[in-house]
Simulated assay, not measured.
Amino acid sequence: MTTTIPKFAHLLIPLEDVVKATDNFHQDNIIGRGGLGHVYKGQLQRSGELISISALRLNRKHRQGVVEFWTEVSMLSDLKHPNIVSIVGFCDDKHEKIIVTTYEAKNGSLRKHLNNPNLTWTQRLKICVGVARALSYLHYDDGRGYGVIHLNVNSSTILLDENWEPKLSGFKVSIKQSLNRMDQVILSEPIGTIGYVDPEIEKTKGVTHKSDIYAFGVVLFEILCGRRAYEANRHLALLAKYHFENKTLSDIILPDLKNQMSGYQISLGSLRKYSETAYSCLNEERAHRPHMLDIVNELEKVTEKALNFQPRPENFVRLFLVIFFFCLLTLLYFTSVYSKEYH
């Protein structure tokens, strides 16, 4: 029996199409396991085109997640942004509830790559900027007439496509709010993933769009430090704030990033601006946290400088000396060969 809301009827996908696309939900196609259910990859025929999809299948055993299901469908049906996952449709038939989006996670989630030595500093910065732009769109876009508080920003809901472009997902607990009331508290229980939850929720008994800012600040430090938000009973937010305030942040930066930075003329001012931005997001008082528009602006400046990194002058000297001695040894070798042939 279907309970489909009429306004979303155009997004309905027959159950048999999803079953076929995922090879009857074959376990080899599982790409994620979450609280609501498993996520499957597949190939779906739509409008004569075969597209790659992700299908979140609600766990039927617990019969939970119906509210979250409709929340995500409602949110994604209105959102169009290059750094947000795109909905293809959904299935609501025969006790099955499935949300189908385009398959954006060719490189998995950001969480899987936090300490990846091959993920460069510039790639990390581009991910930061992409997520910041997505959140700015959610909070301020005039085209919708309302803002969206995501409330589930974390390194697992940030997916990475084949070009390492971020795609924000996980809208199951998101809230719509009038654009002129984004700073007003919406009464709510603590929402989100441990390590990212706005500490002000307990004091104010609710959330605002600044709750997303806090969670994003945690993500910024995850990207810089290559550490997860909560691990071994330790909150990265508290650790990062301690080291920032004591000017020892370099002690917890991902070693591979420190090595990259030591090999290039990276402006200490740029790194300081990045860490200052991340730190400001973690302010205990929401009123003192920056707005996403300002965060986007700061991160874009840092990224622009990062893209113009040049090798340090001393490295030019080293390179020159290496080339010089190589040429000298080559010359001596051929001189020796020439001498033997003619004497």
Rank of each mutant, 00 (worst) to 15 (best):
Y274F: 14
V337M: 09
L15W: 05
S270Q: 11
K20Y: 13
V173P: 02
N180F: 15
L58E: 00
L249M: 11
G65L: 13
A9M: 11
D256P: 05
H150R: 01
Q260H: 10
K167C: 06
A229L: 05
S339I: 07
S47K: 13
L307V: 05
K258Y: 12
P166E: 05
L257T: 08
N180G: 08
L125C: 09
L329A: 15
Y338W: 11
V173C: 03
T2G: 02
H81W: 07
L331C: 11
T2H: 01
G35N: 11
I323H: 08
H150N: 12
S155H: 12
V39D: 02
T122R: 06
N297D: 12
E284Y: 00
I201S: 06
V197Y: 07
D17I: 02
A306N: 03
G89M: 04
N59Q: 10
I99H: 13
G130V: 06
L331R: 10
R124D: 10
F171N: 09
D183V: 10
I186A: 02
N315V: 00
L282P: 00
I191P: 15
L187M: 06
K97T: 10
Q310S: 14
V73H: 00
G269A: 07
S339H: 11
E68H: 11
F216T: 10
F316T: 01
S77V: 09
L299S: 05
